[in-house]
Structure formats: C-alpha cells, structure tokens
Design a protein around this nucleic acid. Structure first.
Length: 239
DNA sequence: CGCCAGGTTGTTG
DNA sequence: CAACAACATGGC
C-alpha cells in the first residue's frame, strides 16, 4: 500500500526550500550547487570528487569537508592518479579538517585501489553494472558502508537508489513514519516503494531532508520554524 | 567550554 | 545480534 505522506513531505519541502542542486562541487574555494547538476551527467572528475566527499563527510559536517576538499584541490591532489601516488601521511595531513583523517586517508587509498582493480582504472565503468551489483561492489570496499555507497551511486551515477542518513532517521522518526529499530534497507524501502523510481526526486529529496535537518530538525529540535509542523505533517511536541 | 556533525568498523556480552 | 568504543576536527 502507498504511503502518500512520503510524497507529500517531498513536495512540501521542495515548495518551501526549492531545488538544492546536490551534490556540490568545490571550485574557487567554495561549494557550488548548480542547477545543471539536476540534468546533466557527471564527469569522471566530478564522480571522483563526489565519492571523496561522501567518504570525508562520514559523521562530519560539510563545512569541515569543504576545507579538506579545498586543500586537496589547491595541491592538485583531487584526482585518481595523485591519490594513488601520494603518501598516506601527506594525504592525511591535507584532509585533517574533516576529522578521522588517518582512517579517511586509508579509505581514499582503498577506494582508488578499487577503481584500479575492479574498474580497471575507469571510474565511469561502474555505470555499466546493474544497481545491485554496483552496490555490492562498493560495499566490499573497506570504509564504504551503505550510506556512502548509496550516495556515490545516486549522486555520482544517478542510479535511482534512496540515501538514508541520520537526518532521515531523525525526521521520519519524529514524523511517526519510521521507528527507532528499523534498519537501513528497510527505511530505504519505505521511500523507494512510495516514490516514483526517479533519480532526480531521490537526489532532491535527500538533499531537502538534510536542509530541514540542519535548519530545524536538530537533536534539539527547532519545531517552531518547521514547515512540516506548520503543514501538520509532523506532530511531535517541541522541546 | 561542551556539543555535535550528510558513518563505518571492530570488539564485547 | 545489540550495544558500545574508537576514530578527530572545527564551528557555534
């Protein structure tokens, strides 16, 4: 059975916040969110940057990730060849602002090993696998879990796969649509079963969820500002 | 100063 | 299998 609330919340957030144009690309020391990202295919360089950003943003705010990406770009390190050749210690130093820098440096190295090995150096070739295979391939890489894999697949390659993150859990827990014990794939299924199979909708919806999470649905919620509460789509008491 | 951020992995009961 | 620890920086 269809849960129309899932789609209603999407259109409500889109009306209120507008298109988010994710995933950002860093240029001239700022993150760019361009309308063209909604329609045009990503270039190999962009896909690599999106994947690096997805790894660096694990449990880390974007502001810190942006600093790390700026460091990488400034030193011309944000490409497969250079990440392959750079010393792990120097890579870790460049991404220090994003936190967990030793682990993340290792993750970036292993991701490039994956591209070299499984994809024969061609990052675009992941597109040619079916969605389940591509996901399993990414999940086999140490340091890439479900959210990171799905972010790469959705925002890099436009595979129609819904990204579930901490904000998704929190917002839809508070809205009474998911429960605390629900697992990642289960929550993902709720969205995919109640929305058109459409990469653009999945991309914008997840970005809008993050927008609402940052602006209103924080750990200490700011319900007085929340459009979902205003539209009676979420009924928790403000605390 | 304490809290927290667009998670993942490893360990323990 | 669930709960918990480890990983770490910078902004508010």
């Amino acid at each position: 059975m269809k849960n129309t609330k899932i789609h209603t919340i999407y259109t409500t957030l889109l009306d209120y916040f507008g298109y988010q144009n994710w995933w950002p690309i860093v240029d001239n020391n700022t993150s760019l969110y361009l309308p063209e990202f909604r329609t045009r295919q990503r270039t190999p360089a962009e896909i690599f940057e999106i994947a690096v950003g997805a790894i660096l943003t694990q449990n880390t705010n974007w502001q810190n990730v942006e600093k790390a990406l700026i460091n990488l770009k400034t030193d011309s390190v944000l490409n497969i060849e250079t990440v392959r050749d750079i010393e792990t210690e120097r890579l870790a130093g460049l991404i220090k602002p994003s936190g967990y820098f030793n682990q993340k440096a290792k993750k970036l190295k292993l991701f490039v090993e994956f591209i070299d090995g499984e994809l024969h150096g061609d990052i675009m070739s992941l597109r040619d696998f079916d969605i389940d295979t591509a996901r399993k391939m990414l999940l086999s890489v140490w340091g890439i879990g479900k959210e990171t894999a799905d972010s790469i697949l959705l925002y890099g390659y436009y595979f129609p796969i819904f990204v579930v993150d901490a904000y998704t859990r929190r917002i839809f827990l508070r809205a009474g649509i998911v429960d605390k014990a629900m697992e990642y794939d289960n929550i993902q299924g709720i969205f995919e079963d109640n929305l058109p199979v459409d990469s653009l909708i999945y991309r914008e919806y997840h970005a809008l969820i993050v927008k609402l999470g940052v602006e209103c649905c924080r750990k200490k919620s700011l319900c007085e500002n929340c459009i979902l509460r205003e539209k009676s789509l979420c009924s928790i008491e403000a605390k």
